[in-house]
């Protein structure tokens, strides 16, 4: 299981580009932390998630 924003998911084996697509996030307006470290955007398609990984996806909204 992979924990994403506090919820357990069965996205083990998928990469972040796939997961963002499934969950409906725009890759241009997010920041992703994998196990408390930033996941660089250039690695979204390369890094495959494993059982026990903890992911935090921050979706930015407009306003400031």
């Amino acid at each position: 299981m992979v924990k994403i924003n506090g919820c357990q998911t069965d996205y083990d084996g998928k990469n972040m580009t796939e997961i963002l697509g499934i969950m409906g996030y725009d890759p241009k307006s997010v920041a992703v932390e994998l196990n408390e470290n930033i996941l660089p955007k250039t690695k979204y398609s390369d890094v495959v998630l494993n059982d026990g990984d903890i992911v935090e996806i921050v979706r930015f909204v407009g306003g400031g």
């Binding site: 997010v30 920041a31 930033i38 660089p40 400031g64």
Partner: peptide, 21 residues
């Protein structure tokens, strides 16, 4: 980070976390 556009916020946060951890 005090930008107003979502994509600019994401750009800055990603760039800072990658370059200045």
């Amino acid at each position: 980070e005090a930008f107003d556009k979502a994509e600019q916020k994401a750009m800055l946060v990603n760039a800072v976390l990658e370059n200045f951890p």
